[in-house]
Amino acid sequence: MRTRTSGLRPHFLPLHFPIEPNLLMAVSRFQSLFIVIGVFGLTVTVGVRGSIADDTKVKRSPSLSRKEVVRHCNPRTVDIEILGHDAEGKWISHAAGTILHEDGYILTCEHVTHPGDSQKIILADGTSYPYKVLARAGGSYDTAILKVEPKEKLPAVQLGHSDSVKPGEEATVIGNPSGRRHSVKHGIIDRVACGGGTQIQISQADIGPGNSGGPVFNSRGEQIAHVHVKIWTAHNISRHIRVDHVRDAFAKVFLDEDRYEHRLGIKVDCQGDEATVLAVEPKSAAAEAGILPGDVITTLDSMRIDEGCHFGLALMDHVGNAPLTLRIRRGDQVMAKELMPKPQ
């Protein structure tokens, strides 16, 4: 969400592309604000917020209480603040995101990554860091990766799986509506696949502008989506990008080595819970190092790789013209492989 410190009214871009049949979306470049007009009415993009910290790893089961979910997930959620100015005065934009990796990689919405005079993420304890936008996947993905340089390792979120989401389950949304940092709302999942199968729908969670990019957690403390849009003509109904669609963005966009100047020649599974090698390009750096399909990547140099999405982060930020070390697990063996990335 973007508001003006001068009190002047922000600009809006015209309606320009369809979301679903009979629905159109209007985007405010300056406000992280989406407006959807059509048969079902008007929709605006949003995000969420949380409270204080516990760094314990959440297991897949059993379910946690609301208080336990918030205590676990709050320190894994970040607020986003962008300050800027234009001809009409100063403005401030609010959004949210999650810590995708302990080294300072942040998951949020693509539509909140507009530039400003300054931009920062704010942790649950109030610590703030400036960030850079590392990668974007627009359209139905509405996903972006930010990077900060933390002084110490950060508590990372655990991603869930869309197939495990059921109608009627409780969901917790944490975000930054109107700058109310780490605010928490609870709702109920009432549709597990909408928006062409890329979104889930939640009712009863009263979220608003500034929640965009913030996480949706299940009762096990796993992130199952990030906040996309609120349907303003329905009471407390909102839609969110499914976590498996985020994984698909990694597989089809961020892990596409044609995007980068150097390549390793590895295809990694982004839908599973480990960074399992699916394929190795012939004559690639990976092939020459002896990487095989079925190997599980556990580190790239000093960066922990706990799942396929983490390997995508490493490709964005670590692979260049210098040699690197992949630590892999093959059956019950752990081994290190030296790779020299090849220029495109």
Rank of each mutant, 00 (worst) to 15 (best):
T3I: 13
T3N: 04
R4V: 11
P10Y: 10
F12H: 05
F17T: 13
P18Q: 11
P18Y: 08
L24V: 11
A26K: 02
V27P: 02
F30Q: 14
S32D: 03
S32G: 14
S61T: 05
S61M: 03
P62G: 15
L64R: 04
R66C: 06
E68K: 14
V70A: 09
C73P: 04
P75N: 10
P75L: 15
R76L: 11
R76A: 10
T77N: 03
L83H: 14
G89C: 07
K90Y: 09
K90R: 12
W91E: 13
W91M: 14
G97S: 11
H101V: 02
D103M: 06
D103I: 02
D103S: 10
G104F: 04
L107W: 12
C109S: 10
S118I: 03
Q119L: 10
T127G: 07
T127N: 08
V133H: 04
L134D: 00
G138D: 05
L146M: 03
P155L: 06
G160W: 00
G160R: 01
S164Q: 08
S164I: 01
V165R: 00
E170F: 02
A171D: 08
T172I: 15
G175E: 00
N176S: 12
S183V: 02
G187M: 01
G196K: 08
Q199Y: 10
I200P: 07
S203A: 14
S203D: 12
D206K: 01
G208H: 11
G213D: 07
G214P: 04
E222L: 13
E222Y: 15
I224E: 09
V229I: 13
K230S: 12
K230W: 02
T233N: 04
N236M: 09
N236H: 05
H240P: 05
R242P: 01
R242S: 01
H245K: 09
F250H: 10
A251M: 03
V253F: 01
E257N: 01
D258I: 04
Y260R: 03
E261M: 11
G265R: 08
G265L: 13
Q271F: 15
V277E: 04
A279W: 12
S284M: 13
A289Q: 12
L292A: 08
T298P: 02
E307W: 02
C309M: 14
H310P: 05
F311P: 04
A322K: 14
T325G: 15
R330T: 05
Q333F: 11
L339P: 07
P343S: 13
